[in-house]
């Protein structure tokens, strides 16, 4: 299996752990009767924004690596800078919206006790998700480069950014899982 496939697997593995962990952290609520709809809270909308922006920008960075190939992405300064800029933008978007979501409410009731409980449980799977991402990367890189005895620097660079992205996306995903279930 190619390193890119391992990279995709590592990211998907991390995000899957985030989703499952988020669901397990919140007990399932009975479904609402037909016709009863829940309006999204401000924090829920912020989490959607963080997840959307983070996935879009990191997806753009991943697409750049796939289109250009890992070697060109690393060797070509322009492509590497574009990749880094996209990943940094994804990190800034996810972190920025999460920080905004956690700020003390400007209006009374904007962040109530249920919001606070959901926010507190949202990072439940964050550490495990990063560990799973790291583990899949390690297995993939070992399998691919065992014979060579060394791993190209670019893959370590990708490993770091993917762990950071999973860590940052874990929180909004955990928040969304919390609102769906509690």
């Amino acid at each position: 299996m190619s390193v890119l496939m391992w990279a995709v697997l590592a990211l998907l593995g991390g995000l899957a752990v985030v989703w499952v962990g988020g669901r397990r952290a919140q007990p399932a609520r009975e479904p609402l009767p037909e016709g009863v709809e829940l309006p999204a809270t401000a924090r829920q909308r912020a989490a959607w924004g963080a997840r959307g922006a983070g996935l879009l920008l990191s997806g753009g960075a991943a697409a750049g690596v796939i289109v250009n190939g890992p070697d060109r992405t690393y060797e070509d300064d322009g492509v590497r800078l574009l990749f880094t800029a996209l990943v940094l933008a994804a990190v800034a978007a996810a972190a920025g919206v999460t920080m905004w979501a956690k700020r003390p409410g400007a209006k009374a009731g904007a962040l109530d006790e249920r919001d606070q409980a959901i926010l507190a449980q949202a990072p439940a799977a964050q550490a495990v998700a990063v560990l799973v991402t790291l583990a899949i990367w390690t297995v993939g890189l070992t399998e691919r480069f065992h014979g060579a005895g060394a791993v190209p620097v670019f893959y370590l660079y990708l490993l770091f950014w993917s762990c950071l992205l999973v860590n940052l996306l874990a929180e909004p995903v955990g928040i969304l899982a919390g609102y769906r279930r509690s």
């Binding site: 609520r29 009975e30 609402l32 009767p33 009863v36 829940l38 309006p39 999204a40 809270t41 401000a42 829920q44 009374a108 009731g109 904007a110 109530d112 006790e113 249920r114 919001d115 609102y179 509690s182």
Partner: peptide, 26 residues
């Protein structure tokens, strides 16, 4: 009601549907 008691409308809906137990303070 949500504005008066300092919570979100979503919480009021869940309370009315008895899907959420409020804290003593709420």
């Amino acid at each position: 009601l949500a504005d008066r008691v300092g919570c979100t409308r979503q919480t009021i809906i869940l309370l009315e549907q008895e899907r959420y137990v409020p804290s003593l303070a709420l």
